[in-house]
């Protein structure tokens, strides 16, 4: 395993802002891992995402993606085709009137031959489970479907990394589930590196690593079990641990002694059941 994205003491301030949105942040993302980035609004999550494909470049410090410095203009296209980016509002990232034409947009920009674009479009739509909708008009799809089309749109660049900036914020529970299972599959089966920015804790349960941002720097990072079990930290960051952790935590205060590293509902219930039966 090697680090595929590296932030080195990155500072960034939006033009016209008084406060820095990133204050010397350093982090590293492993190739092929599923990383969730959490934090309250204004913690710098989106700025981090935009640094990952050189939409923003650091005021000072350095961001390296696949060994390339994002501040070097000559790397721009190479970085962007390697880091697919999906945003919150699916309506504002779909450019064409027909699903398949939209997915073709990126490979067309890259100057790929027609026949290969066709293949890429079909295989990308297949990966997100939207192949049967390829002739549909995007504005008639549901939010979750649109967002999966947007994911297919970046997959068609065949990137190694996909960064999603709150992709589920505008979706209903079904749409959220579909999007999260799609990106989990991309990571586990297609070995892509996935960076998911979110404030829904339940979406991070399957992540390899969780990074909690606060005021432009890293407040905590580690496997989700570890981070979520620090209930005080989660509260302080305006986040809330999953109910499974919270209930075990409160039961511990009543005389139980559960480890707080269980995130699954079933495993949590099993532990409580075992403890109750042994009495």
């Amino acid at each position: 395993m090697s680090s595929i994205i590296q932030f080195d003491h990155v500072h960034y301030k939006y033009p016209g802002d008084e406060k820095e949105s990133l204050c010397g942040i350093s982090l590293s993302i492993e190739e092929g891992s599923f990383v969730a980035v959490l934090g309250r609004n204004g913690s710098g999550k989106s700025s981090v995402a935009k640094h990952m494909n050189a939409i923003l470049v650091p005021d000072s410090g350095k961001v390296t993606v696949c060994g390339m410095d994002t501040a070097d203009e000559s790397n721009l296209l190479k970085i962007r085709r390697n880091v697919g980016m999906v945003f919150q509002n699916p309506d504002n990232q779909i450019v064409a009137n027909v699903v398949e034409d939209d997915v073709a947009f990126a490979p067309e920009n890259l100057g790929i031959p027609s026949a290969e674009i066709r293949e890429r479009v079909d295989s990308s739509l297949e990966l997100v489970g939207m192949l049967e909708y390829k002739k549909h008009a995007p504005h008639l799809l549901s939010g979750g479907q649109k967002q999966r089309v947007a994911i297919a749109g970046v997959l068609a660049m065949q990137p190694g990394i996909i960064v999603l900036d709150e992709p589920t914020a505008m979706l209903d529970p079904q749409g959220r589930k579909d999007v999260i299972s799609t990106i989990t599959r991309l990571c586990r089966e297609n070995h892509m590196t996935v960076v998911l920015i979110t404030h829904h804790m339940d979406e991070c349960v399957n992540a390899d690593e969780v990074i909690v941002l606060s005021a432009g720097s890293v407040a905590a990072s580690g496997p989700p079990q570890e981070v979520f079990s620090d209930i005080a930290l989660m509260e302080e960051q305006g986040l809330s641990s999953p109910e499974t952790v919270k209930i075990l935590y409160d039961l511990n205060r009543e005389g139980f002694s559960f480890p707080l590293t269980t995130l699954g509902v079933d495993a949590c219930a099993q532990m409580i059941a075992d403890a109750l039966e042994s009495r």
Partner: peptide, 25 residues
């Protein structure tokens, strides 16, 4: 269903019936 209800349902499957509706922490 709420997360607390999910845990209650899982407990029921494991033979522990909480006997009353559960929907909050």
């Amino acid at each position: 269903v709420p997360q607390s209800t999910q845990i209650a349902l899982a407990l029921k499957e494991k033979g522990i019936d909480l006997r009353e509706p559960v929907f909050t922490h």
